[in-house]
Design a protein around this nucleic acid. Structure first.
Lengths: 221, 221
DNA sequence: AACGGGTCTAAACCAAGGTTTAAAGTTCGA
DNA sequence: TCGAACTTTAAACCTTGGTTTAGACCCGTT
């Protein structure tokens, strides 16, 4: 969102492609290819090297070789899934087989390319990956601000929030909780202000978003 | 997900596994295996044979050979995706390669098994497929009844429904449409009865479901 | 021409939501 | 112990939502 942010079509200001491959020449070749299409890239020889650096803060796509010194690409993918890190991954390999491919794709890989591959195939996959990560980040950002607002609610305000989201009336909520309707109204009013919901339907959608993405998970198309 | 898993939870009365493979002996062998775990199956030698029959009406999972007389398994998958038929597919093949695998998995396949495979691997995949189809059917059934109710709404009732779902007040809707608040209230009331929404939050969720699944699509986990 | 469905409205009424003011009890940490 | 945050309530008031009754108009079909 800066002054020069994507002049017009420019898909991203700070998108970054991370290449992990143990072949130095190949890494450089990929870096050049990406530069041609105006994509930043950072290259590493191993997973360990990548982990030693820090994650880019913009939309990111991983290009991973399957066979790597130390941890393999597939192992790394499994770790990322376990750690709930949803980086899009494009796999490359010279020595792949079908079970590896299935595992990679089940793990959510964007593409599984066998070397040698056409440059365009890689670029297409990277663009899909970046688009997916962009969408995921926007989604996550929205969920995070929502969660932050939810955190400041008092216990009473939270329970009333959920009752309201169930469609219960103030009167019913008051009965459920053993307090008066006035009190419910006060809590409800404070809750709506804190969570910045302008209407009941807005609140409803906020709640549903909170419930769907309890820890940053999401369903990308 | 073990061999006897059905005996206890009995996940389905009328689940059906459809096997399409040109090897008659193999078909029969699969049929026996499925019968052991109490799964109905129907076998076909080709896609054409399957299409000539009619789709089972319960939860279904397809087991497809890649290489088939006539249309190949991958072609058939592509057609199903195009036709928006979301049957879960488990692929089997004796002569697969990585691009095929990638295409199949991108197309939403549950599994891609290379012959020979372990019985348990197939059964696991079939159970995942059936579970997914079961969930999809439930989802679709709910969306369908909702859509049916939406269809009986008059044009006025529909526009008011959407305005309400945007969080607009009766007064604002009246202003937007150039009619009185009383009229809005009447349409709104009739609309709520016809669509069987007991509260505003219920309506809100109904609308969101209609919008998310405009033609039976859905996001399975 | 008669009928039904859809649209529109007024008037009157009741229920539910929302705000404000003012006050008081609890709990917990500084 | 003091203060801050949380919780609770009454009372009064206003807005919004929802229903009913009764009537009117338009339009297409029978």
């Amino acid at each position: 969102m800066d002054l020069l942010s994507q002049s017009k079509a420019a898909p991203d200001s700070n998108a970054c492609v991370v290449v992990i491959d143990d072949d130095a020449e190949f890494r450089e070749s990929l870096g050049r290819l990406l530069r041609v299409v105006s994509l930043q890239s950072r290259t590493f020889a191993s997973v360990a090297d990548f982990l030693a650096a820090q994650l880019p803060d913009g939309p990111t796509c991983l290009i991973l070789d399957i066979r790597l010194p130390g941890q393999s690409g597939l192992d790394f993918q499994r770790d990322l899934v376990t750690a709930n890190v949803k980086l899009p991954i494009v796999f490359m390999t010279g020595y792949g087989d079908i079970p590896m491919t299935v595992q990679a794709m089940k793990g959510g890989a964007i593409e599984f390319l066998t070397k040698p591959f056409r440059d365009q195939d890689l670029l297409d996959a990277v663009n899909v990956g970046l688009a997916r990560d962009r969408a995921r980040r926007q989604n996550k950002a929205a969920s995070d601000t929502l969660r932050a607002r939810f955190e400041v609610l008092t216990p009473r305000e939270r329970t009333i929030l959920f009752r309201v989201a169930e469609g219960r009336l103030n009167k019913q909520i008051a009965g459920d909780m053993g307090i008066t309707e006035t009190t419910v109204k006060v809590h409800r009013s404070n809750m709506m202000k804190k969570i910045k919901a302008g209407s009941l339907v807005e609140l409803c959608r906020m709640i549903d978003r909170l419930k769907v993405a309890p820890d940053g998970a999401e369903t990308s198309s």
